[in-house]
Nucleic acid binder design. Structure first.
Lengths: 169, 169
DNA sequence: GCAATGTGCTTCGGATTCGAAGCAACTGGA
DNA sequence: TCCAGTTGCTTCGAATCCGAAGCACATTGC
């Protein structure tokens, strides 16, 4: 029942602004901590964390890009940067010659371990401090639903790359 | 009671990821709509919207920077861009010679009005669609508290520009 | 096997961001 | 008034991001 009125009511506006502002403020703070603690950008941290989560410590580029929200080209850039620093390795997959498997290295894990405590502290102090346990549960639930919905709905360009023949000139 | 354990429990992690992902997805979608409908970046839209909200249609640069979350230099860049397009004017304040007053123009208001309906639609379809009214209220409350807390807590560098004399060398 | 299409990743150019440093105007105290 | 410190904004350089275009491998249909 999305009636789509031409404006938002005060509550909706408040939720929208609060979401944008809170995530911006949090992201800025976290970025600063990551930069100081391990010279990582936020994306780089997300990539390392995602890889560290994987049982094998590795993922395909495309799966990484989906997990994080960034563009393919941006991912390439950051993966190269991380590779230069020796925090990940990139090897062509054996199945698909064009697919690249990214794997976190020991040093990558070390850097990750180095920044993690500070990361957790920041989250606790900035995001969770003013919230009760029940608030946090509610937040996870509501935003989780919103995220799942947005992931399903065609997020980027409605039609990824279809170019059905272009019907001549 | 910030016990700051060395890791987060599943609920906290879920809330954190959901917040980051939901805001990222939403922001990307909105950015695309704004670009298509009025060739505006997200910051530019926020600036115009903030100015449009003001009774006088104008604000000082610093107040704008505080309202949005961006850096002063980034604000300067965007304000110049908007001025080139004739969507805002920038005039030195009469009180403070160094202060700049930014004012939205008629054309700025027109562009704002042009992108607004689509903006509202995106929000409705992506963010609010899967949420009940009570969800939205709760979200506004919780994230509002988090935002206020983060705004108070030294967000950027712990000490903005204090260089209290530097106790000479 | 070969051509047409699809998929995975990178390169390219341009836009946007930030922090540090710099300039100019204001403020308070001697 | 004059000086030191503060505040408002801009410039500068570097980093990061994206989308479009391009390249190479894979897959399908014939």
């Amino acid at each position: 029942m999305t009636s789509s009125p031409s404006s938002l009511d005060a509550t909706q506006l408040g939720a929208y602004f609060a979401l944008i502002e809170a995530s911006s403020l949090l992201k800025h703070a976290v970025e600063q901590q990551l930069r100081e603690a391990g010279d990582l950008s936020y994306v780089q941290f997300q990539l390392l964390a995602t890889l560290g989560d994987s049982p094998t410590g590795s993922r395909r580029m495309t799966d990484l890009a989906d997990g994080v929200v960034y563009s393919r080209s941006g991912l390439t850039y950051q993966a190269q940067t991380l590779e230069k620093r020796g925090l990940v390795t990139r090897t062509p997959s054996s199945d698909d010659e064009r697919s690249i498997t990214v794997t976190i290295t020991e040093e990558g894990r070390a850097v990750l371990a180095g920044v993690f405590p500070g990361h957790v502290t920041i989250l606790g102090d900035l995001l969770f401090a003013p919230l009760s346990r029940s608030d946090i549960e509610t937040l996870a639930d509501i935003l989780g639903r919103a995220r799942d919905h947005m992931r399903q709905t065609p997020p980027r360009s409605a039609e990824p790359r279809r170019r059905r023949k272009a019907a001549g000139s």
